[in-house]
Structures are given as C-alpha cells and as structure tokens.
C-alpha cells in the first residue's frame, strides 16, 4: 500500500494556508508577570541592584559569627531540649485531637454532610494561620513560656494531621468496610475494625512528619516569647553576640537533622 507523492499536493490544496496559532495568552501571561514584578519592586524599593549589593553584607555578618562561642553550648542545651519537648507534646496532642475530626470529615464513612462540610471548612481556616501567629496570640493569653508555644503547635499540627488523615481514610480500600457492613457491624465497630487498621500506618507517618516540621517551628517560637531556644537566639542577637547566635543555629541544625533522619527511618518502616 504505497502512498503516491501526489496525495501530498491534494492535501496541500485542502489546507492551503497553515497559520501558526497565535500565542497571545502566553505572551500576555509573561507580560503580566513582568508588570507585577516591576510594581512589586517599586512598592518595596527592592531592586536587582540591591539584591546583589545586599549579599556581601550577609557575608560580613557570617564572618562575625565565627568562631562560635562553644562554651555557650552548656547554657543552651536545656532550652534546646525544651524546644524538643514542646514539639513532642504539641504534635501528640494535635494528633489526638485530629483523629475524631478526621473521622468526621471523611466522606466515605457516610457521616452527615452537614457535619463533614463545616468540619472541613474549619480545618481549611485553621491551616491558613501560620504557627508563629498562633504562638503570638497564645503568648498574649497565657503569658510568656513554653505552654503558649505548645498550644500553638497543637493547633498547627491539628490542622495538618487532620487534613492528611481524612484524605488517607478516604483513600482506603472499601472492600473490608462493605464486608463489615454485610455482617452487621455498627458504626463504631466499622471504624475500629475496618478503618483503623488501614489508616493507622498513614496516621503515624503523618504524625512523625508533622513532628519534623514542628521541631523547626518550635526553634523559632521563642522569638515571640513562646519558649524554647528561640528566646535565647533573640537575646543573643539583641546583644550582638553573633558568636553565641551561631552556636544556637548550629545546634538547632544538628538537632533538626538528627530528628529528620530518625523520623524518616521510622516512617519508611511504617509504610
């Protein structure tokens, strides 16, 4: 079945002028982006020139941070551990609170839509508020100290874990649930024996993931007075003790890395 060359000519006659599609939308998109950038640059007076000249200043700051004042390590060890404690308690309480809410939100558990939709909306609202804002508010209510930081992390973790978990519940295999319903299980039994075994590894994994995020968060909560290592960082910077600040930052990095590493190993075993 050979195609003769002449069909090309007939095709050409059928489509005499192939006009490339105009890319107005694409061009418009880039133009809008550039216009926005220029407007932003004017508004904040941040120009590319400043960006380039600003970086060397950062370099001189880094020079002031070395050598670190290692003797300060013994002073900051306690607050550093407090930071980890804040993260552990905040994550756990947030995770526990998240369980019932996740169950309410999951659409496949057939709980009334009048419950699940508002519950989801509240979750979305909570997740729009950054952890540091929660901390600032709780410090105002409960006073300076780790308790306010812990509460901030409770709310913050609650939003993340509940969302991830209800999505995991919605993704579980419906087979066991149907089998349970078929043998006449009630809603509680359904959740205990149908949902929990499938969703629990995911929940644990999210809990650990949130813990990793929270350790980072807890390290800065002190900047608004909510306990932990951040308070000392703020003080060191306020007194221009950059050698001490660098010790705090380095220790924070080490702790964060160690916890990330451990948590990643456990998570890999869970899933």
């Amino acid at each position: 079945m050979k195609t003769p060359v002449s069909t090309s000519a007939t095709l050409k006659a059928a489509a005499p002028d192939l006009i490339p599609p105009r890319k107005y939308k694409q061009y418009a998109g880039w133009l809008v982006l550039i216009a926005v950038l220029i407007a932003c640059s004017i508004r904040t007076e941040v120009t590319p020139y400043q960006l380039i000249t600003g970086l060397p200043q950062m370099g001189s700051l880094l020079r002031e941070m070395f050598p670190p004042d290692w003797s300060y390590l013994s002073t900051i060890w306690g607050p550093m551990m407090e930071t980890v404690q804040i993260a552990i308690l905040g994550t756990t309480l947030g995770g526990l609170l998240a369980i019932p809410v996740a169950l309410l939100c999951a659409s496949n558990l057939a709980i009334s839509r009048y419950v699940s939709l508002p519950a989801r909306m509240i979750l979305n609202l909570i997740r729009t508020i950054p952890d540091l804002l929660f901390a600032a508010i709780f410090v105002a209510v409960f006073g300076i100290g780790p308790f306010a930081g812990m509460l901030a992390l409770v709310f913050f973790s609650f939003g993340i874990i509940a969302k991830l978990t209800f999505e995991a519940i919605e993704a579980i295999d419906p087979g066991p649930l149907e089998a349970m319903t078929a043998v006449g299980a009630n809603r509680m039994q359904l959740i205990m024996f149908g949902v929990v075994p499938q969703a629990l590894p995911y929940f644990m994994s999210y809990l650990l993931y949130t813990f990793e995020v929270n350790v980072r968060a807890a390290a800065v909560l002190g900047l608004v007075g909510a306990g932990g290592i951040g308070l000392l960082l703020d003080r060191a910077l306020g007194l221009f003790r950059y050698d001490r600040a660098s010790v705090i930052i380095l220790l924070t990095l080490v702790i964060v890395l160690v916890i990330d590493y451990g948590s990643t190993i456990i998570r890999r075993k869970l899933l």
């Binding site: 195609t3 069909t7 090309s8 095709l11 050409k12 059928a14 489509a15 192939l18 490339p20 599609p21």
Partner: peptide
Amino acid sequence: LQRVNIREKAY
C-alpha cells in the same frame, strides 16, 4: 511534514 502526510498536524 507533507512528505509524510501529516502537514495539517503542524501546530
């Protein structure tokens, strides 16, 4: 493209 008979798919 016309040689391989898909000129109309150019864009």
